[in-house]
Amino acid sequence: MAGRRRWSTEEILDAAAELLRTGDAESFSVRKLGAALGTDSSSLYRHFRSKTELLRALADRILVSAMEGYRPEGDWKQRITALALRVREAFGRQPQVAAVWGRYASGGTGSRLAMEELLQALRASGLPDEEIPERYHRLTVLIASLIASEGGVGTMTADEYEQGLELFRVSALGADPERFPALAHFARDVRPLGADRRAAFEEILAAHLAHIEAAIPPKRPTGS
């Protein structure tokens, strides 16, 4: 009698990614993954001790893909912006995992590569070393939060998105001008959450980097 097939870690992650494309991280389970692979879920626990560990590994693989071929170019702000956009694009291809990364982080090779580049870029900015850890923390919270939020929009079906747009129109255009005077005034110009996400991402990130830049001590004149 032939033995049960043994799945590699990469094959399990491939199957998990495919399963998530048709569902979401909340409804995802190791049992469902085992059924998709035609095996008992207990065999998958030899590779991953829990659902959370598996999802973290999947998020880290996305970070590895974002870092592939990356070469730091430009000044420190350009480096951070380029890295953030690469990570955003990578999670945009698997938005179901974006919220997982925002919630649990990862901790593998991909995470270390991204952390190293962000810390190197901040060090190149001229910030004192003692300020870099806190600046790094705030920057990663911002990037992860924006990507996780965008991932939530990215997992909506076309029908769900259209329903959301209709609710937004009713909420904005139907606002009572006496009770909501500002909303009524700007109703035709305000945009729904899912509109123009890349521009919003870049503007928010640029504003935060400008805030960091303002805190960099001025360079002392040579010879002083």
Results as ranks from 00 to 15, higher is better:
T81P: 01
T81V: 11
D196Q: 11
E166P: 07
H185V: 07
G174Q: 01
F180T: 02
L118V: 15
V97W: 01
G92I: 05
A158F: 00
E160G: 06
A175H: 07
Y161M: 14
A144Q: 12
A184G: 10
P128A: 15
W101R: 05
L167T: 15
L139G: 10
A199T: 15
I143D: 02
A84K: 01
L183S: 10
Q96K: 06
L127P: 02
L122D: 02
A200C: 03
G110I: 13
D129K: 14
R197P: 02
A148D: 05
R191Y: 07
D129I: 09
S145E: 05
F186K: 01
R93S: 13
A105Y: 06
D189Y: 15
E160D: 14
E166H: 10
E178H: 04
G194I: 10
G126W: 05
G154F: 08
R138K: 09
G151C: 07
R88Y: 11
E178C: 01
G92L: 07
F91T: 04
G152R: 08
E131L: 12
V190M: 06
A98M: 05
A207H: 11
V141T: 12
S145Q: 03
V170F: 08
L119W: 03
A158D: 11
D196E: 11
R103W: 07
A158N: 02
P192G: 07
A195N: 02
R112S: 10
V190R: 01
R112A: 14
F168M: 11
L127H: 09
L83T: 12
M115R: 13
T81S: 13
R86I: 05
L139V: 15
T157W: 04
E162G: 00
I132F: 07
V87G: 05
G92N: 02
T140N: 09
G164V: 12
A172G: 03
E166S: 14
P177Q: 11
Q96Y: 06
E166M: 08
Q120P: 00
R197T: 15
V100T: 04
R198T: 15
L83R: 07
A98G: 09
E134Q: 12
V141Q: 11
L119E: 13
A158E: 14
P181V: 02
A199W: 00
E117M: 12
Q94R: 08
L139N: 06
R86W: 03
T140Y: 06
E89T: 15
F180P: 01
F180D: 07
